[in-house]
Structure formats: structure tokens, C-alpha cells
Design a protein around this nucleic acid. Structure first.
Lengths: 196, 196
DNA sequence: CTGAAACCTGAATCATTATTCATGTATGTC
DNA sequence: GACATACATGAATAATGATTCAGGTTTCAG
């Protein structure tokens, strides 16, 4: 997928950023196919044709948004777990940070999920990257004896799945999410499992 | 959403079923928007217009497929766990059955996930229904002392999330999935958690 | 100041497809 | 075997919206 060169002037950079932000809003709210370039440029106070000065296609802005979401999510979760004293605390902090992020920017979250259909490669890359880092974190925690033995990659994906499902059910589907409570309950299960 | 009456004659029932099956294939392979009615009817050896004898719109066949998927998944998982001796065994059997189902009918799985965007109500109903049953099963297992105490609904969604994530990573993204191994590893974590 | 590069414009193009419809053909009942 | 109902057809309709383009305007280095 061909990508345009960076804008050379200040004005150009601002314009491009405005269009990208508008695309986030419109695509996040309405989904990829319902989002029209016309509406994106309208929201960005820009002429329709200007869109194609900065992006080669509708698909390309979308991909850009998915990449941005990857960077943001990793930054937010990474930050949240960075000063946890041990891995179990890190799991709790990471889950909580993720759920709060979903609550604050549901559009970005939606875009990543839609990427599964619009741009499967970007979607896969997103989780692959995240999964790699997650796996590594668990493997090292295991070496340090902070968690029990077990395949770190399977665990990483299982834990990502928990976050996503709880985000859907308790953040997106709920008027007033009680994130604290959900994190608490989930964390108990993550630490000790279901066995009596 | 208006739904057509059932076909009255044998011929009609067969034709309708043929179109529905073709829709499953085409929509499952290409996704909702890339799937064209023309291709669906071509695959069903049927004239284009005949589609509208049986379905009111493209959206409506899609919904029909989502509902069908709901019935099938519940049947398959329900069957798998029905003769488990206790809840922890049931969790293992259910996870394994789900992963095998994803491996066998990836198109249907894809359709449900796409419903999140194409028909959010159907998507929500699907998980709501499943979540209700799952929660109930966990609550009763807890009463019987087969699992430890904890919010059964949060646990239900967490467990569904695990299944979905492992389905993505180890079934859809893998040439030759080793379902047995993944189930084994995940089940250890589900039973005992990460705590050392 | 000035010219070239960069940026901006929005009407026109172009392609795609869901849906309709007017006109047949089959089915089953009497 | 005739009639009504149900089913089948595919060309025509109609709407949509992504992308292009031919010509302006702004920026900024020299």
C-alpha cells in the first residue's frame, strides 16, 4: 500500500492531522463502510479533494488509525504496569488501564476490532506485536518465580482475551461501568483460577 | 426487520436453503460488504431476483446466519459439557469443543464476529444469551462447591474471552492447530491461575 | 520580491450493487 | 386439466460514494 510523503510545510502537517482526527471520529462512530470521505472532510473543515492530498485511499487512513491505536495502547498499558512491584500486580494494573482506555476512547477500540475485516494484516500485526511483548513479560516473571509454570504465550493470549471480553461487556455495554469491581473479580480469577 | 413467510412448497424450501447456504459461504469468505447478492445467487444456481423472493434484504440473510450460528454453538458446547462429571471438566470440554468448531467452520465464526458491526443487536443478543447460560452454570457449580467463590458473570465473560482469543490465535492463525495442547495449557490456568 | 513547489478546491467521473418489477413457469388442489 | 397460488427470472432502476482532475491559492527559500 503506497503511502504519501510527509507534508513539507507546517500548514500541511496541521491539515493532515485534522483529517486524521476527523477520520478517527467518523470511522469510530459509524464504522468503516458507513464512514464517507465527504463527512470526514466536512468535519475537518476541508475540501473533499484535499483528502487525497494526504491519503491514497480510504483504506489507508484506516490503517493509519489502527497503527496509532497500537502505539497508544502499548504506551498506556506499558506505563500502567511499569511501576508494579510484581507480575500479579502488573496484571491487575494492565487490565485496569486497558478498561479505562476503552471507556475513554471507544471509537479507537472499535476501529481495531473492525480492522479484523477491513485490514486483516494490520489487525494481526497489532495482536502479534502485543502478544510478543506480553509473552516475554510472563516468561520473565516465571523465571523470577512470580508466577507458576505454564506456557507463557497461551497465557498471554488468554489474558488478552479476558481484557477484550470484559471491555465489551462491562465498558461498552454498560451505561456506568464499575471498572474497579470488575477488575477486582477478574484479578482474583486470574491469580487463583476456579478450583475450590 | 420484516421477515418473509416460510416457503409453502418443497421446491421453495429447497431453494431457500440453497441460497442461505451460499450466503454462508460467500459472506463467510469475503465478509459482508464484499459479498454480493449476485455471487450468492450464482453459487446457488439461482436467478438474482429469486433472492428477494425469500429474503427482504442483504442484512436479513446475514442476521439469519448469525442466529443459526448461535443455535449451533450452543448445541455443540452444550452437548460437549453435558456429560462432564464436574464443572472444571465441563470447562475443559467446552473450550475444546469450541475450538474444534472454529477449526471446522471458520466462516460461521467470522460471520458472528462481523455481526458486531453489521448487526450489533444480533451480536449482543448472541453473547447475552450465551453469557446468561454460562453464568447460570457457574453459579450452580459454585453452590455445589465445585468451584471457588466469585462473581459468576464476570467469570463467564472472562472465560468466553479466553475461548475467543485462543480461537483466533491458535486456530485461525495457525496452519495446523494443536488444539489439545492449547486446551491443556489454558485449562491449567483456568483451574489454578497464575499465582505461584 | 519572486518563482517554484506545495497545498487546496469541489464539481465531474466512474464503478459498483442492492433492489424492483413486469413477465413468465411450476405446483398442487378441485 | 384447469385454476389459483407460489415460485422464478434477469434486465432495468436508482442511489451511493470513492476517486480524479484541471485549475486556483499559499508558502517559503533564495
Amino acid at each position: 500500500m503506497y503511502v504519501m510523503a510527509e507534508p513539507k510545510t507546517k500548514r500541511g502537517q496541521i491539515r493532515r492531522a485534522k483529517i486524521l482526527a476527523a477520520a478517527e471520529t467518523v470511522m469510530g462512530d459509524q464504522g468503516f463502510s458507513a464512514a464517507s470521505i465527504a463527512e470526514i472532510t466536512r468535519l475537518a473543515d476541508t475540501a473533499l479533494g484535499t483528502f487525497y492530498v494526504y491519503f491514497t485511499s480510504k483504506e489507508q487512513v484506516f490503517r493509519e488509525l489502527v497503527l496509532e491505536m497500537g502505539r497508544i495502547t502499548r504506551a498506556i498499558v506499558g506505563e500502567a504496569i511499569s511501576d508494579a512491584p510484581d507480575r500479579l500486580s502488573a496484571e491487575r494494573a494492565g487490565l485496569e488501564a486497558f478498561l479505562r482506555f476503552v471507556a475513554e476512547r471507544p471509537q479507537l477500540y472499535r476501529i481495531v476490532e473492525e480492522a479484523r475485516f477491513v485490514d486483516p494484516e494490520a489487525y494481526r500485526d497489532y495482536f502479534w506485536h502485543f502478544g510478543q511483548a506480553y509473552t516475554l513479560g510472563l516468561r520473565e516473571a516465571q523465571k523470577r518465580g512470580e508466577i507458576s509454570a505454564g506456557d507463557p504465550e497461551v497465557r498471554a493470549y488468554a489474558l488478552m482475551g479476558i481484557s477484550k471480553a470484559l471491555g465489551d461487556r462491562y465498558v461498552l455495554w454498560e451505561e456506568t461501568p464499575d471498572i474497579e469491581r470488575v477488575v477486582e473479580e477478574a484479578h482474583k480469577m486470574i491469580c487463583h483460577g476456579l478450583a475450590p
